[in-house]
Amino acid sequence: MNVERGKGRIILGATCFADASAAIRIAISLAGQTGRRIEAYLVEEEAILHYSSLPTVTAISAGGASSEPVTADAMREAYRHDARVYERALSDAARAAALEWSFTTERGELAATLQGSAGAGDFLLFGYQKLQRNAEGIVIVDRLARPDRQLHELGQAIAGEMGQPLYLVSIAGNGEPGEAGSAALPADVDKGSATTVIEDGSSGHAGLLRHLSGMGPVGVVVSPDLASRVGVSELLDAARCPLIVPVE
């Protein structure tokens, strides 16, 4: 790949081990290709801790079963448990691939914590567990007007390593509704092996989130400015898969 080696880190974060585990493979693959160090975070979200202290709240398992009422103590204990298994899983995978890594538990908000830890040249990797096993494809989300070559190379590298088809979603300008864009990608942008190219010059953020919500990909690579404008949590809720954001 042409993604620059040795520079920057991979900042991996999730609010639970289930989400992190889905992203560890991507992190290991990406770090293996780029020689980057993995810095992993388990973020104890304030919102989740607040939620657990409410009376008579319940948690629903991935199989659709409601648990007994959740307590703050139980949630803290669950965080400690997830931290242990998260660190062990990362340790095993990184050691097998001879990669450098670190693990930290932080309290805060996921996007803010990761962005606060990142510097220029880092990759942010937000974990999100897929519920559907038939998820397919790596989606590159880019601006139609000002495509980012490095973003495309990063998407192609991940798709190639994971044996996934590549999809490309290009939206107009800054993604504001109604903003006009060109009808096609510029010729100098390599579409790579992208099998599906969605060029949407008119529907803005809402259209982007709608596209992502219907695709069910394995991972999404999104340009930093779009991530900033649309919002990481919105993108995660729409794509419902790991999200990779290069840091400028």
Binding site: T15, C16, F17, A18, D19, E45, A47, I48, H50, Y51, S52, S53, L54, V57, T58, A59, I60, S61, A62, S67, V70, A74, M75, A78, Y79, H81, D82, Y128, Q129, D237
Partner: peptide, 22 residues
């Protein structure tokens, strides 16, 4: 909003897009 917690999914009320504190 639907929260993803170590204990599973949770549904929380929000204000201005953020989960409400107790």
């Amino acid at each position: 909003t639907i929260l993803r917690t170590p204990m599973g999914f949770g549904v929380a009320a929000t204000r201005e897009g953020k989960p409400m504190t107790p």
